[in-house]
Nucleic acid binder design. Structure first.
Length: 876
DNA sequence: ATCTATGGCAAGCCGA
DNA sequence: TCGGCTTGCCAT
């Protein structure tokens, strides 16, 4: 084997006697992750290593930093600064000692006194810092100190993070170890960046050092990480997915695809010893046959231990959980097994496990980093959308029926795809992960598993510690702020959101779309919105009202969220985005700047929403409400101004204005006005040859000068529309994209008629594949939890469960058709059962949205006779 | 622990 | 039969 083992020979496993292993169960309600005994070298000198994460070692009772060395090897650095877990209280030490659970608690090391700035009350205050021996003494179980002391702060910060923030460590940036100490490596400043940082700092009133720190963090390239992707196959019974908690079934194949070129599949031979046909096997795939499952598993653990970073797709909940429990079943010693199972995640004692399923499932990643290119989170849909590859097609055969060589091939394909999800576009995903680590100050292992609100939380915590601000409790914010003062239009929502300007129905040639660049982040920045500046304690600020609300904004201080969002916005808009398009720079630099601007975009887009989410620790409804209110004010006053200078505004949504045939001078005037009066950047987003609006909001299509068609909100675009109707819709759009002038519509009308008639005929003559009529709907809940109503897709799901005993759960995609006898899952329907009339109705409503806008009528286009003949021949 | 928000459209269920 | 409600999906 070419791989280098990370498990140093000096780390003898015999040192830990079996009977002294920690108990199996994790302590109940533990907020801390399980103690990980790391199998990594701990050098006292290291020239350079990228900080991947900080964890807590329960045995050593110390924080431990994990560094990625240049050679692709991991190193551990154990805290040598005697940093300890703590909480803060406003109760003086002598009073604290009067609490029985405090005086009797042997884990308390000392009481310190610290000053912290309380931003909500705008004053400094003395707090007692209660330092304890281990994190569980602070919080995590019912006898922890945070449960016993009436007023505590910062007791919910996970210890590894607490250490990281107190030390000012930034994951994803380089450090060295010198004489046993961990020291950051300052990158050499980029020349023009320094000048730019100076300007930015002056303009935004931010400390230049802060700006430079961000520059340094975001500009440095990331290494091409040494890593391996792993996938496993397990015997099944009756096609059911094996239970990973019990791990009763045998492992049949395990494959690896490494950044170092390793392509391997371990496969368990069947009783007959027949390897099966080897056609279609990649020529460089190395296949290792095994007859002993335990030996195969041991070899797997060796391979996993030899890489610093291990990738899986759903390893937390399946692959690694299965390997972990299967090793127990087969009696493999825990010391031979690098997998450490937490309650929700599988970690490694020898490296970092990245479960890509968790990463791609992250909504912020899906939408803002990948423009919602994939809609489902399975390996197949994600890989199909991002790298154009799919799993191997088994042609309907069951996995259990495959010969060993075929199985090896199938299994390897999955690890190969998993690896390529991190390597495509010049390792985009790995770079994105590093950028997000730096921006959010979150370790790699956590970053890929937590959502955007936790990223922002981590960043905010870190900044609070950096500036010696007290991290407020959520109740502190709630107590000082009133609820919302606007009423939501949608029932059940907390406050009023964005404004949509009613479209003027019809077709418009020569339309320019203007939009406000990063409107919500700009509003947060320019109007000084933050949890501590909204409804601040100063009476003299109360007159600084937010339009349409009861809220006011502080006039005496710069808000933290406002400053942070503003800084990130400026870095993105003024530096990284232009640099990513600067042709004077090499491809390599450009793509790196592009990753940076994308990572910042993810943050900026979420920065407003989190303030309206109860789960966010800085939840502050007035911030979210005021952002939306100011944004409404911005778009309405800009639309008014546009009309005043003679522009024709035909539509607008949230941050965009559609204008018919504007003069370039009026555009220039409007942009300048918005900058001066509203402090926001209005830009030309795109132009349309023509746009067609129906009377509906969020519902139009437009044709650009090059003939590409933009479709928004139309049924034909929705994923639950049957393929046959989508296809008809597409053909119609092709016709429309060729329209150059109003006169062309006459010809287009005829062509659309032909397209529609063709679909008609195929429905009438039952000339279709049932699957082309399938309506695909995803279940957001388990079928049993639909108690209020039983929608059609649930009826179909229940049929699948009953008749085909299929496993349908939340997240499953159900495909059904409408038949004369109610709904049927595609799997059970025949063409002659189809209720064709229902599909004509669907065709009518889907295409109707386009025809409406064109002032055409479906029935009229088809002609009375066609409809008649249809129903005589096919329907009833 | 859990994932940011609201606005809007269409289809179907189901009780009045 | 009507209309409120539930559900899913998309726009921003």
């Amino acid at each position: 084997m070419a791989a280098i083992s990370l498990v140093g020979s000096e780390l003898s496993v015999e040192e830990v006697p079996e009977q002294e292993l920690p108990p199996e169960e994790e302590p109940e309600e533990s907020a801390e992750e399980p103690a990980v005994k790391l199998h990594l070298e701990t050098p006292s000198e290291l020239e350079e290593g990228l900080l991947l994460t900080v964890q807590y070692d329960g045995e050593a009772e110390k924080a431990v930093a994990i560094l990625y060395g240049r050679s692709g090897k991991l190193y551990a650095w154990y805290d040598n600064t005697r940093h300890k877990p703590y909480l803060l209280s406003d109760i003086p030490p002598d009073k604290l000692k009067e609490i029985r659970e405090v005086s009797s608690n042997s884990a308390i090391l000392r009481f310190d006194s610290v000053f912290k700035y309380n931003a909500l009350d705008d004053r400094k205050f003395r707090y007692t810092k209660l330092v304890a021996r281990d994190p569980l003494a602070i919080g995590g179980n019912s006898s922890s100190l945070r449960e016993k002391i009436p007023a505590v702060w910062e007791a919910n910060v996970r210890y590894a993070n607490c250490f990281m923030y107190d030390r000012g460590l930034v994951p994803g940036t380089p450090y060295r170890i010198s004489n046993g100490n961990l020291i950051p490596i300052k990158s050499s400043a980029i020349k023009d960046a320094e000048e730019f940082a100076g300007q930015l700092a002056t303009e935004a009133g931010v400390d230049p050092q802060t700006v430079m720190t961000w520059f340094n963090a975001l500009s440095q390239p990331a290494p091409n990480f040494k890593r391996v992707a792993v996938d496993i196959e397990v015997e099944t019974t009756g096609g059911k997915l094996p239970d990973a908690d019990e791990a009763k079934q045998r492992l049949t194949a395990i494959s690896f695809c490494g950044s170092d070129g390793v392509k391997r599949a371990l496969v368990l031979m069947k009783g007959d010893g027949e390897p099966g046909p080897g056609e279609g096997l990649p020529s460089d795939l190395v296949i290792d046959p095994f007859t002993d499952e335990a030996e195969m598993l041991r070899e797997t653990f060796k391979v996993i231990s030899s890489y610093p970073i291990v990738l899986t797709f759903n390893g937390d909940n399946f692959d690694f959980k299965y390997l972990y429990n299967r090793a127990k079943v087969l009696g493999i010693a825990r010391t031979e097994n690098p997998i450490v199972m937490g309650r929700r995640e599988a970690r490694l004692s020898t490296g970092i496990h990245i479960d890509l399923f968790q990463f791609f499932k992250n909504r912020a990643i899906q939408i803002y980093a990948f423009d919602a290119k994939y809609k489902e989170y399975g390996l197949d849909p994600v890989a199909q959308a991002l790298i154009g590859k799919t799993k191997l097609d088994l042609g309907g055969r069951a996995i259990d029926d495959l010969y060993p060589l075929e199985l090896a091939n199938y299994c390897f394909r999955d690890s190969q795809i998993t690896y390529e999800l991190t390597s495509f576009s010049d390792n985009l995903v790995m770079k994105l992960i590093v950028m997000l680590m730096r921006t959010s100050r979150t370790g790699m292992d956590d970053l890929v598993r937590i959502g955007v609100s936790s990223w922002i939380k981590n960043l905010m915590y870190s900044i609070h510690r950096e500036r010696e601000w007290l991290i407020p409790n959520p109740s502190d914010i709630a107590d000082r702020k009133k609820g919302s003062s606007t009423t939501a239009i949608i029932k059940g929502k907390k406050y009023k959101g964005a404004l949509v300007i009613n479209p003027k129905t019809g077709i418009y040639f020569g339309v320019t779309v203007l939009d406000f660049a990063s409107l919500y982040p700009s509003v947060l920045k320019e109007y000084n919105l933050s949890y501590e500046t909204l409804n601040c304690p100063h009476p003299e600020c109360k007159s600084n009202k937010v339009p349409e609300t009861e809220n006011w904004v502080c006039t005496k201080r710069k808000g933290l969220a406002s400053e942070l969002v503003g800084l990130l916005r400026d870095l993105r808009v003024l530096w990284f985005k232009p640099k990513s398009k600067d042709m004077h720079l090499s491809n390599e630099y450009r793509s790196w700047y592009d990753v940076a601007q994308r990572a910042l975009k993810v943050f900026l887009n979420a920065s407003y929403g989190v303030f309206g989410a109860e789960t966010f620790p800085f939840y502050c409804l007035p911030v979210a409400e005021s952002t939306a209110a100011i944004a409404r004010y911005v778009i309405t006053s800009t639309a008014d101004k546009a009309k005043a200078i003679g522009m024709n505004v035909i539509y607008g949504d949230t941050d965009s204005l559609f204008i018919k045939q504007p003069s370039s001078s009026s555009i220039t005037e409007l942009i300048a006005w918005a900058r001066k009066e509203l402090k926001v950047d209005l830009e030309i987003d795109k132009e349309f040859r023509y746009v067609a609006f129906s009377e509906r909001k969020k519902n139009y299509f437009g044709v650009k000068p090059d003939g590409t068609v933009d479709i928004k909100g139309l049924l034909g675009k929705k994923r639950n529309t049957p393929p046959l109707i989508k296809d008809t819709f597409q053909k119609t759009l092709t016709v429309l994209s060729s329209v150059q002038t109003p006169a062309d519509f006459e010809r287009a009308k005829g062509e659309i008629r032909e397209v529609l008639k063709e679909t008609y005929s195929s429905l009438r003559d039952l000339k279709f594949d049932v699957k082309d009529l399938a309506i695909s709907v995803m279940l957001n809940k388990d079928p049993a939890s639909y108690t209020k109503t039983t929608p059609q897709h649930i009826k179909a799901a229940k049929l699948l469960q009953e008749k085909l005993s299929m496993d349908i759960t939340a997240g499953s995609m159900v495909r059904y058709v409408k038949t004369n006898d109610g709904v049927q899952p595609v799997e059970l329907a025949r063409p002659q059962d189809i209720d064709t009339k229902k599909y004509v109705d669907l065709l009518k409503s889907t295409l109707g949205q386009i025809l409406d806008a064109l002032d055409l009528d479906f029935d009229e286009i088809m002609g009375e006779r066609t409809l008649e003949s249809f129903f005589l021949a096919g329907g009833t």
